[in-house]
Design a protein around this nucleic acid. Sequence first.
DNA 1: GTCTATAGAGCGATAGAC
DNA 2: GTCTATCGCTCTATAGAC
Lengths: 240, 240
Amino acid sequence: MGKAAALKVAGGKSASAKRRPRATPARPALSVRERILEVAERMFAEHGMSGVGLRAITTEANVNLASIAYHFGSKDGLLEELFAQRAAPIAQERLRLLAECKAASAKPKLEDILDAFLRPALTLGVQPQFGGPAFVKLRARLATEPAATTRKILSKAFDHSSRKFIDAIAEVLPQLQRADVEWRFYFVLGAMFYTMADSGRIQALTNGRIDPGDVKRALHHMIPFLVAGFRSPPVASLHP
Amino acid sequence: MGKAAALKVAGGKSASAKRRPRATPARPALSVRERILEVAERMFAEHGMSGVGLRAITTEANVNLASIAYHFGSKDGLLEELFAQRAAPIAQERLRLLAECKAASAKPKLEDILDAFLRPALTLGVQPQFGGPAFVKLRARLATEPAATTRKILSKAFDHSSRKFIDAIAEVLPQLQRADVEWRFYFVLGAMFYTMADSGRIQALTNGRIDPGDVKRALHHMIPFLVAGFRSPPVASLHP
DNA sequence: GTCTATAGAGCGATAGAC
DNA sequence: GTCTATCGCTCTATAGAC
């Protein structure tokens, strides 16, 4: 369990060992490492961390069972690596868009701030050809896990940027107390994660009319809803 | 390590072998069945369905491994039983409160409708002395699981009452198209489940100032937020 | 109804040949 | 770097004694 997490992080023979993608840029002949990451992402998302074994992953990825230990040290190491690779771009893009908001106006619009927060989370995983959308779902799954290890991974990946967003929202809504902003931000997270989880509940309730997997439409409805919530009058504080 | 942890703790020989509860009504000497349900609820909530084995449950409950098969048939049977027992009262209480709203006024207030929906989910599990709060968390965990079996269980337990609430909300917000109501109801579910999951994220982000486990305060903030979201202008429909 | 014992498979991790 | 083989353990489910 506690063993070394990273034995050898950057595989890659030498820098330029095979450079012949030709006319098929879609399948660049994934390395063992990449194949494992891609399959693990999809399977962790679908079945949860404890719902899928290393055997299932390696079989599906057509690699040897031992290669996970070799490349990632352990199952937890694999998850950490996966997160390290996927989460950073999301947090970065969020902060980049937030900076753009602030550059455009001294007092940015709340909808733009929320868009900057939500869009990268819901769309950034989707562009890679395969395995991408799975990360969205995986995050949502981990978001409801009480396990301390996953909490730490999430904290490390997203705390910094999320705090910046709370600050930014508090700045454009000076009439709200900090606690009000924080509670309301919490509801943003709830709507976001539930959309990301794509649990099938709302399809069941609406005979398939609502599809949270339709990201464009989801944001289109979500942002005005949340903005209105944020703009509602401050809630009188409840004495304990 | 592997040896039997519990050889014989709760015998229970014949039906009335020891009837002296005296001044401790809190522990009514649970049956094997009840002990299993109580422990399983807590452990499923904490570690997820696939994160906890029958051995862990039976050891913790001080019952024999085989007794789960005897009483519930299988692990899934145990989950179903657990849900059958806990979910029905929640759905019932929701509908009772909704009926109360409608009885009080021809056009009930939206906040009362949302309160009727949210309060039973967040509070009803809490009153039993032990194991109660765990069901709240368990529901939240299952809500993000893609497994077909858990989806079916959730559907069976909650679809009917949830549809009634969508109808009721649509009735008091006639300016909204059905799809708008449905999307917004979806965000209600998100905020609710995330609060129920008590994932620790918001504590991490706010240095512990916000505690979603404080149900009274959670509803106090959640309902005005959601009401404002629902009351925001209809969203222009997006053509596909 | 409660127990022991076990089947039969899968688990994560690792040693060591190549 | 990739493989086979395996260790030691856990998994769910069941057969059958009491």
